[in-house]
Simulated scan of single mutants.
Amino acid sequence: MYIRTLARTRGSWEALDVLGGPADGPVAFGGDLGPQSLLAAYRRGLYPFPAATAEQRIVNELMYEAEVEAGVVKVLPGCDDPYSIAWCSPDPRPVIHVERARLQRSLRRQLRSTPDWTTTADRCFERVVRQCRTGRSEQWLTDDLLRGLCVLHGLGHAHSVEVWEGDELIGGTFGVRVGGVFSADSQFTLRSGAGKTAVADLVRRFAAAGGRAVDVQRDGDHVRLLGARPVPREGYLALLAGRHEPRPLPTGRLPARRLAG
Rank of each mutant, 00 (worst) to 15 (best):
M1C: 12
R10T: 14
W13R: 11
E14R: 13
A15F: 01
A15N: 08
V27T: 04
A28H: 04
F29G: 02
D32Y: 01
L33H: 03
G34M: 00
Q36N: 12
A41N: 04
A41E: 03
Y42L: 07
Y42A: 06
F49Y: 06
A51Q: 10
E55P: 02
R57Y: 02
R57C: 12
M63N: 14
A66E: 15
V68S: 03
E69M: 07
V72I: 09
K74Y: 00
L76Y: 02
L76V: 01
P77Q: 09
P77D: 15
G78W: 12
G78V: 02
G78A: 06
C79H: 15
D80C: 06
D80L: 12
P82Q: 05
S84E: 13
S84L: 09
C88T: 00
S89Q: 04
S89M: 05
D91E: 13
D91R: 05
P92D: 10
R93P: 06
P94K: 09
I96N: 09
V98N: 00
V98S: 02
E99M: 02
R100E: 15
A101E: 02
R105I: 03
R112C: 11
R112D: 08
S113G: 11
T114E: 15
W117P: 11
T119Q: 08
A121M: 06
R123G: 04
F125A: 10
R127C: 09
R127E: 14
V128K: 11
R130I: 03
Q131W: 04
Q131G: 10
G135T: 00
S137C: 01
Q139P: 02
L141C: 10
D143Q: 14
G148Y: 00
L149H: 00
L152V: 01
L155C: 06
V161C: 04
W164I: 05
W164P: 05
G166D: 13
G166E: 13
E168N: 11
E168C: 09
I170R: 14
G171H: 05
G172Q: 06
T173R: 03
F174P: 01
F174V: 01
G175T: 01
V176Y: 10
V178H: 06
G179N: 13
G179I: 05
G180S: 13
F182C: 07
S183G: 11
F188H: 08
T189W: 14
L190T: 03
A194S: 15
K196D: 14
K196M: 12
T197I: 03
V199Q: 05
A200P: 07
D201I: 02
L202H: 03
R204M: 13
A208L: 12
A208P: 06
A208Q: 15
G210H: 13
G211L: 07
R212N: 07
D215L: 09
Q217D: 10
D219S: 13
G220T: 07
G220K: 07
H222W: 15
V223I: 15
L225G: 14
R229T: 15
P232D: 13
R233V: 07
E234G: 09
Y236C: 09
A238L: 04
L240D: 05
A241R: 15
P246A: 07
L249D: 07
L254K: 07
P255E: 11
P255N: 04
R257G: 00
G261S: 11
